[in-house]
Design a protein around this nucleic acid. Structure first.
Lengths: 168, 168
DNA sequence: ATAAACTTTCAATAAATTTTGAAAGTTTAA
DNA sequence: TTAAACTTTCAAAATTTATTGAAAGTTTAT
């Protein structure tokens, strides 16, 4: 296999994984492209490599910056903006976990907290079932939230090292 | 707030969370409905409550059974099929983790393994960057995989208990 | 001030995904 | 058998989401 072919496979695989997990395919592909690029790339280069429009490239890059996965770079004497991705996969994981926790998990926990407080007749099976499901899922969601919070603070070796110590 | 209203909120929140994580909204909603129902429900009841078509209800229920989240129940003397959801949220989380690991994570790990083996010129920055990103992400993916595997075997109290011991 | 170089916006369009519903299929009872 | 009760299928339609590209906006150099 050639490097060029391997890069394409990587971009494709990353794009697919992204779309399966609710991250837009193009966004994951642009990220993958920047991950395997030693140099920062211009919007132009990204557009051409992935055959996407200027508008799409621009918006996707802004999103990626919003997720903290990609940064702008300015080269001295040039007007063009260059983009590069953090290559440390542990940082990537933390960044993604942090954003999704904030954007998706926390709003749900807020609703679950409200729903947990609903008062009703404990003899009513409908109420009891509702209460149990909501309370249980709320607990689970909070545990997940705590785990993510810890992950955000931890560094990789400590995190995985510690986890696997208890599983040895 | 009324129980009925609370149920709707729960179904809505669960549906939104699902769609943000690549699980079809209707599937998450049907699951939510079954979670808060003390009795098993018929396709008919699900269709009416969520205002979805027969075909959609049928396919969604099959999917949910495929994920191991919902089961059929037959009532003596009745032709109709009833459906109910496992109410134990830890089981739900394990089930979902197991399926997504198998369906989405494992195929990517397979590709990453292949790409890791690519030989090339270590002096070529393009090759070096590719190698580093792919190898690192591969390691991370494998760690995630191992963590999920452990989760699948563990029971809730042991899992979260152990995790938080090391974070105390 | 003007123009060139570059970036951003967003309405229109295209693509992907989800849903429908009627027809076909299956099972059970008589 | 036959028919009623129920489930499944899937092509077409609807909906949602992503993408385009040209126009508007911005910045820099002269």
């Amino acid at each position: 296999m050639e490097l060029a072919e391997a890069k394409l496979k990587f971009i494709e695989a990353w794009g697919k994984l992204g779309s399966e997990w609710g991250i837009n395919r193009t966004m994951a592909q642009v990220h993958a492209l920047l991950l395997v690029s030693p140099e920062a790339l211009t919007t132009e280069e990204i557009m051409e490599t992935l055959s996407i429009s200027r508008g799409n490239a621009n918006m996707t890059l802004r999103d990626l910056m919003g997720w903290g996965l990609v940064e702008k770079q300015h080269k001295a004497g040039e007007r063009k903006e260059y983009f590069f991705a953090d290559k440390d996969s542990w940082n990537i994981a933390r960044q993604v976990a942090q954003e999704r926790k904030k954007r998706e998990l926390e709003p749900v926990i807020k609703i679950l907290n409200e729903l947990t407080e609903l008062k009703g007749d404990d003899k009513d099976p409908a109420f009891k079932t509702f209460k149990k499901s909501v309370t249980d899922i709320n607990k689970l969601a909070k545990n997940v939230n705590r785990t993510l919070e810890t992950m955000l603070k931890a560094d990789e070796s400590w995190f995985f090292g510690s986890i696997f110590k208890i599983f040895k």
